[in-house]
Amino acid sequence: MAVFVALGAFLMTLAGGWTALRVTDRRHLVLGLAGGLMLGVVGLDVLPEALAAADTELYGVPAALLLFVAGFLLAHLVQRLLAARRADRTPEVGLTAAAALIGHSAMDGVAIGAAFQVGGGMGVAVALAVIAHDFADGFNTYTLTRLYGNTRRRALTILFAAAAAPVAGAASTLLFAIPEPLLGAYLGFFGGALLYLAAAEILPEAHHEHPARSTLLCTVAGAAFIWLVVGIAE
């Protein structure tokens, strides 16, 4: 089931790359919706589940929350390092940035598989967030690769690698069962990274050139939809 659902991430990544190649006019609405979905998944599903699964504490703080903060900070660190290198516009920099996005997409697939090990409702909620924000991953993968002087053929190859990465990540979780405490810890870490992507990357980009009411409504609708999904799953 996890691999089948991860195919949605594969298709959405390709859709994002195609949009970067062809059109960008309605991209802000998709990004606004993606940001809302990601926010809803983290706050309403991933974090509560992580706290329940990883119930140990370190110095009075739940381990899942510590890893949540660590995931947020690591995502911020990676983004800052990539931003610092973007001044050097060489093909190698573009490939480095794209490789980081491919690695991130593979971990998205692992998160889908891990969430399905918790339960079907959790798996669906996490998959929705991953599929939604993979549009932005596909868009950024193609854009960054081309921005630094790589050929269109190479950019498309990297895009397909990024699209296949979530499927490979989800498939890897079929080979082993993650212990519940470790599962909770991973979900906490993944939640922190996902929240950073939503708050610092996806939503600002959605409102950058189109600060429209429709974009905000898409964000609210995304979070509300996750609330509905969580409620039905319970």
Rank of each mutant, 00 (worst) to 15 (best):
residue 143 T to G: 14
residue 76 H to I: 00
residue 118 V to W: 03
residue 132 A to T: 02
residue 93 V to C: 01
residue 111 A to S: 15
residue 76 H to W: 12
residue 125 A to Y: 05
residue 95 L to E: 10
residue 122 M to R: 03
residue 137 D to N: 12
residue 143 T to V: 06
residue 89 R to I: 05
residue 105 S to I: 13
residue 109 G to S: 11
residue 142 Y to E: 07
residue 139 F to V: 05
residue 71 G to L: 00
residue 109 G to L: 09
residue 75 A to R: 00
residue 124 V to S: 03
residue 132 A to M: 02
residue 75 A to D: 00
residue 109 G to W: 11
residue 118 V to M: 06
residue 117 Q to T: 06
residue 134 D to A: 10
residue 76 H to Q: 11
residue 106 A to G: 15
residue 118 V to I: 15
residue 136 A to F: 11
residue 116 F to W: 08
residue 102 I to H: 13
residue 84 A to C: 06
residue 93 V to H: 00
residue 90 T to D: 12
residue 125 A to V: 09
residue 74 L to W: 04
residue 115 A to L: 02
residue 89 R to Y: 04
residue 84 A to G: 09
residue 84 A to I: 00
residue 71 G to N: 03
residue 75 A to L: 01
residue 86 R to Y: 04
residue 122 M to T: 13
residue 73 L to I: 13
residue 111 A to P: 02
residue 123 G to P: 08
residue 125 A to M: 12
residue 90 T to C: 03
residue 123 G to F: 06
residue 131 I to T: 08
residue 104 H to S: 08
residue 112 I to K: 01
residue 98 A to C: 08
residue 76 H to C: 06
residue 83 A to C: 03
residue 139 F to G: 09
residue 97 A to N: 10
residue 94 G to C: 11
residue 79 Q to D: 15
residue 138 G to M: 11
residue 132 A to Y: 02
residue 80 R to L: 09
residue 126 V to N: 01
residue 94 G to A: 08
residue 96 T to I: 15
residue 104 H to C: 05
residue 120 G to H: 10
residue 116 F to I: 06
residue 92 E to R: 15
residue 84 A to D: 14
residue 93 V to N: 03
residue 112 I to Q: 02
residue 110 V to I: 15
residue 72 F to G: 02
residue 139 F to T: 12
residue 131 I to V: 15
residue 101 L to M: 06
residue 90 T to K: 15
residue 92 E to Q: 12
residue 91 P to R: 12
residue 107 M to C: 11
residue 85 R to W: 04
residue 115 A to G: 07
residue 133 H to L: 07
residue 87 A to Q: 07
residue 92 E to W: 14
residue 93 V to T: 05
residue 91 P to Y: 10
residue 100 A to L: 08
residue 89 R to Q: 14
residue 100 A to C: 12
residue 81 L to K: 05
residue 109 G to D: 11
residue 139 F to H: 14
residue 130 V to Q: 13
residue 140 N to W: 09
residue 81 L to Y: 02
residue 115 A to K: 05
residue 89 R to S: 10
residue 72 F to M: 02
residue 128 L to V: 15
residue 76 H to K: 09
residue 110 V to Q: 04
residue 93 V to M: 03
residue 97 A to D: 09
residue 101 L to S: 01
residue 125 A to G: 10
residue 110 V to E: 01
residue 129 A to P: 13
residue 128 L to D: 04
residue 101 L to K: 00
residue 122 M to F: 14
residue 122 M to Y: 11
residue 117 Q to G: 08
residue 82 L to P: 12
residue 115 A to Y: 04
residue 111 A to D: 01
residue 74 L to G: 01
residue 83 A to N: 12
residue 133 H to V: 09
residue 98 A to Q: 11
residue 99 A to I: 14
residue 112 I to D: 00
residue 111 A to Y: 03
residue 122 M to N: 02
residue 132 A to N: 05
residue 130 V to P: 09
residue 116 F to G: 07
residue 124 V to I: 15
residue 103 G to H: 11
